[in-house]
Design a protein around this nucleic acid. Structure first.
Lengths: 254, 254
DNA sequence: TAGAGATTCGAACGAACGTTCGGTCAGCTC
DNA sequence: GAGCTGACCGAACGTTCGTTCGAATCTCTA
């Protein structure tokens, strides 16, 4: 992957609070910073945030250990910058793409395609985003969680729109999280040699998911119980067999 | 959660190669070992394998740092034992439950229910299994990968059985990995206060997934292209829009 | 009750960790 | 050419890491 592509670093993106100049053209500092972030994404992706050392990053980027700290204040800030940039880029693009489209099915397909396109074009950043989801703490963690909640909320809105327009009955929360499971799991298995590119993947996953929620409401309720094992662990309760009404706040709480 | 429950430690499970006595009743060593494993699951779940220290585990289990090493030879072996036990338990139960059932839809529902029941009853072990999927290296990593591949293969078999019996056309690999995404994502969001228990979750996820694959084949092929953003990133290739024929080996390669 | 083996622990090992300090050096301004 | 600034680095800081060692204590058997 090329370094400092627009994919990772759109022009003018305020990488560092210390010298954010949103409207000026790229300078050397921002370019070097973007290079470091790209290497950091790769290292964090390969070894995990905790497993990656600043010495790994120093080796990978060809910069001295001390020199790295010229561009950010801590290892934690690195993770924060990677996650924030990935998330804001995805949400921003999604908003643009949803703007000119009204059909509920089509809008959900756009959501899936947007998510997959970014995931496959930025596999390393995406794995860091998903896999280190609860690594950041305090203010930085809260800020990422806010963006994430906003992203979830947009998707939940699309699903509820579909449910309303089509007069369906599925649980929005469960459909939302099933969909996120499908698309966020991709980083563990996608192989560009044998798997479809984003458009094809989005088509097939969109088919499975949309046909699923469109037809799921029509299935009959539970009419049998799963046999417990002979060893005996059939101690499932009976409360809440299907959907519960809960507050929006609790549904999306982190 | 109770310590050393049959859930975590079925009697006679050979916890440690050094003194495996599969057919003898539990002894003190095995009981203490199971207690340590339970604490380790919780700590690894909370802080991640790399982020968790042996001192954390010492504190949590109330045993001295050196004392822990009486029960296993390294931190890595701890993770290995947790993952191996979780995986073998899931696969073993699945085999028992599939034994007396022939309908392809029903069998897939049994797979989902079995997976969810274990996941919700052993949330901590399950997160460690999923989240530390590529942490173990060398022999231990290869052994876990073998069990995992076997588990995937069973599920893929169920999906292909469905496809054959119903005369459908979906990609088994993509359906398989979509399903695993749905069910393995649960550890990130399930809240016992507001979400259904295993039976209810399995019903709803089974509905979405099964209705999805049953109806997905019938949808028309791609008849439009997703609009690229104004910023320009519509550089999706055209190769492999849908399914590809690949070898079973490559489909399940780790 | 002597002895053996299982169990546990305090203290320490060397290595690796994230971060900082004091400095060099190039390029710029006046 | 003196002075300043941004970019960068070698060496070290203090801390924490996984693991080990030798000894103390407990439990059971002979």
């Amino acid at each position: 992957m090329a370094l400092a592509t627009p994919e990772i670093r759109p022009a003018g993106f305020p990488l560092n609070g210390r010298k954010a100049k949103p409207d000026l053209p790229e300078n050397d500092f921002d370019r070097r910073m973007a290079m470091v972030l790209e290497h950091a994404s790769r290292i964090f992706c390969e070894k995990g945030y905790e497993g990656a050392s600043m010495r790994d990053l120093s080796r990978a980027s060809g910069m001295s250990l001390a020199g790295l700290y010229h561009y950010f204040e801590s290892k934690e800030e690195l993770l924060y910058l990677i996650q924030k940039h990935a998330f804001t880029t995805i949400v921003e693009r999604l908003r643009q793409r949803l703007a000119g489209c009204t059909g509920p099915e089509e809008r959900i397909r756009i959501f899936i395609h947007n998510h997959l396109e970014y995931s496959l074009a930025n596999k390393e950043a995406m794995k860091v985003l998903v896999h280190e989801d609860d690594t950041l703490k305090n203010d930085r963690g809260a800020e990422i969680a806010t963006i994430k909640r906003e992203y979830y909320r947009i998707c939940l809105g699309l699903l509820e729109e579909l449910r309303r327009v089509k007069g369906l009955q599925f649980s929005g929360r469960l459909a939302l999280l099933s969909l996120f499971g499908m698309v966020n799991w991709i980083y563990t298995w996608h192989n560009p040699r044998i798997d479809p590119v984003a458009v094809g993947l989005a088509k097939q996953m969109g088919d499975i998911f949309l046909q699923g929620v469109l037809h799921a409401s029509k299935t009959k309720p539970l009419n049998h119980t799963f046999a417990p094992l002979s060893a005996g662990s059939g101690r499932e309760g009976t409360r809440r067999k299907t959907t519960v009404k809960t507050s929006r706040k609790e549904e999306l709480a982190r």
